[in-house]
């Protein structure tokens, strides 16, 4: 089984209202002076480990870059397990 995880966060240059609301709420735990919180998403993709492995890697890279993340406002990391 190939398992890809795509971690997506708003770029630091883009205002993130959700992150800002969470940052504000951290004060309730007594953690003051938090510089920044960014809220993003994690997408997990599972694929049977058959077929052309190089092609699957390249397809996953395209999907993460061109679809799952929007390069105008987001940054992403792609982690793939189960591929040589």
């Amino acid at each position: 089984m190939i398992r890809a995880r795509v971690l997506i966060l708003p770029k630091r240059t883009v205002f993130d209202p959700q992150g800002e609301a969470v940052r504000h709420a951290l004060g309730h735990f007594g953690l003051a002076s938090v510089e920044r919180v960014r809220v993003g998403k994690e997408i997990e993709i599972e694929i049977p480990g058959e077929g052309d492995q190089a092609k699957i890697r390249s397809q996953l890279e395209t999907i993460a870059r061109d679809f799952l993340a929007n390069p105008v406002v987001e940054e992403f990391e792609l982690h793939i397990e189960g591929l040589p």
Binding site: V14, F15, P17, Q18, A21, N70, V72, V73
Partner: peptide, 17 residues
Amino acid sequence: LCEAGLLPGALLTNADG
């Protein structure tokens, strides 16, 4: 249109949520 790349930029969650 922005997601399709036919217009530049992106539309994000309203600043006040």
